[in-house]
Amino acid sequence: MGHPAFSVSHREQVAPMSFVFYLLAALTLAGALAAVLLKNTVHCALALTVAFAGLALLYLELDAQFAGFAQILVYIGAVAILIVFAILLTKGSETPKDGVYSKNWLTGLAIAAGVFAVLGWAVLERARVLPGPGGTPTAAPAVTVLQIGNALMGRYVLPLEIVALLLTAALIGAVIVAMHEKEETK
């Protein structure tokens, strides 16, 4: 709180949010809503891809180029494809006769609405002490991929190795879990 950036008041001259932000936010939220609400599971997976793309564009809007392209590669390129494969392997595209929502969907909806109410209240209530530009937009942080690579190979090399180990273990584990056990099923 004592840092100069925290003491900038947002009441002096509030910069209007850019039109691009509203467009991307609407795209992302519409994709997420469609992914949750649609009946056909394959349509849900495609809507999820739209939401992931909107998020990647939001990262680019936030000057986080590396994270934006990592989002496109990992989520649109890998996770969405994995989800489509899983839907097709489990015949999940067939809409069940007795509805797509759980028996106690009302409780779930109430919990989600409560969580959003608390989060939104916290954000709006504490908007004054959040860091960030009050009126004048700050210059984009000059962060190149070279700096990110240097940080990954220097200060963050141990987490990087742990993530590499985790990904290897997850890869082998997923294959072993989903592997067809022919001897036992016979």
Binding site: L29, A32, V36, S102, W105, G108, A113, V115, G120
Partner: peptide, 14 residues
């Protein structure tokens, strides 16, 4: 909002 939509989906879908 995105978190709440995801939470609602995780809690209500079958």
């Amino acid at each position: 909002l995105l978190f709440s939509i995801g939470l609602a989906g995780a809690l209500t879908r079958r």
